[in-house]
């Protein structure tokens, strides 16, 4: 399993190599990339903050849980931090599986879990201002009262 939070550009080939496995018949790759608009506003760039050591730990937990839920051979989860320009990749998830269906399902589940609980935050920077985005999918918003 590969998990990493890094200011360096994410390299798809590295993740593919990391999850490569002779038993795999499929490798699923998901790239989250920076979009030039959100909720009708033009976005100039994004700035990502993270708690890197905890983020890598939570990514590893998600990876282990994914291995229990899906027939995964291996998994890689990488998130970039710092300033990202339009079109650059912020999140890279790669999974290797015996057959294709599981690669889509596992990839989808992992990306959703990353958005709920990995301590990474993005700030949108517009022409005329900026704002930290507080994810509607975050545990902190979905929030079981028992967590408080």
């Amino acid at each position: 399993m590969l998990t990493r939070v890094t200011p360096e550009p994410l390299v798809t080939d590295e993740a593919v190599a990391a999850v490569g496995n002779p038993a795999a018949g499929a490798i699923g790759i998901f790239l989250g990339v920076v979009r030039d608009n959100n909720l009708g506003r033009r976005v100039n760039y994004l700035e990502y903050d993270a708690y890197p050591s905890m983020a890598e730990k939570v990514m590893a937990e998600i990876g282990r849980e994914a291995c229990g839920k899906f027939a995964l051979e291996d998994v890689a989860i990488l998130h970039r931090t710092g300033r990202l320009e339009i079109g650059e990749a912020s999140l890279l998830v790669a999974v290797s599986t015996g057959h294709r269906a599981e690669s889509f399902e596992a990839g989808h589940w992992i990306v959703n879990e990353v958005k709920k609980r990995v301590p990474v935050w993005k700030k949108e920077v517009w022409e005329d201002g900026e704002e930290w985005i507080e994810g509607p999918e975050s545990l902190g918003v979905q929030a079981p009262a028992s967590m408080r």
């Binding site: 708690y51 998130h79 990474v120």
Partner: peptide, 11 residues
């Protein structure tokens, strides 16, 4: 102790 505002990783 880390104070964790709602996370918003990915895109």
């Amino acid at each position: 102790v880390a104070v964790i505002p709602p996370v918003s990783g990915g895109c």
